[in-house]
């Protein structure tokens, strides 16, 4: 396993770009291609926004701790927070090109749930967990493909 790199930020929307940049720089350093870096950036963006909006229920309530490292052929990003537990099972299934949202029922689209779908689509593994001492933990992994 490579060295772990850490960043801790206040839970504010304005900090998300810094989080994304921190992880994107790490992904580029780990040898991921531009598309993979973009995907990881989007996944971290959505994860951070979810922490602020859902775990903390607003800005400036708590901190977000982000780390990245390389393990075997995986780029691993971990986000931690001390907010409310997130239950991914409550997120409705995503619309898709094969099953697009209909114009007539656009009101019913759970567009607030899009973030987790992007995270799952963009990354190879997404695992949520929680323990009483350390709070919420989200681990997202992206396979490093040999160029």
């Amino acid at each position: 396993m490579s060295k772990k790199h850490f960043l801790t930020t206040p839970g504010r929307y304005a900090e998300i770009q810094r989080i994304c940049q921190f992880v994107a720089d790490g992904a580029a350093q780990a040898g991921l291609d531009e598309t993979a870096v973009f995907n990881i950036e989007l996944a971290c963006d959505e994860a951070s926004a979810n922490i602020i909006e859902h775990a903390y229920g607003g800005e400036n309530i708590g901190e977000i701790q982000i780390s990245w490292h390389v393990a075997d052929d995986m780029f691993v990003v971990t986000l931690r927070d001390n907010g409310q537990q997130f239950d991914p099972g409550r997120v409705p299934p995503p619309p898709s090109s094969q099953n697009p949202p209909q114009a007539d029922d656009i009101d019913s689209i759970k567009i607030g749930g899009l973030g987790i779908h992007f995270m799952r689509k963009m990354m190879d593994e997404v695992v949520f967990s929680r323990d009483p001492r350390h709070g919420n933990k989200l681990v997202m992994k992206k396979r490093i493909k040999v160029k």
Binding site: P95, S96, S97, N99, P100, P101, I106, H117, K121
Partner: peptide
């Protein structure tokens, strides 16, 4: 297209 918005 990932979320079907290309059809909306």
């Amino acid at each position: 297209s990932m979320v079907g918005f290309d059809k909306v």
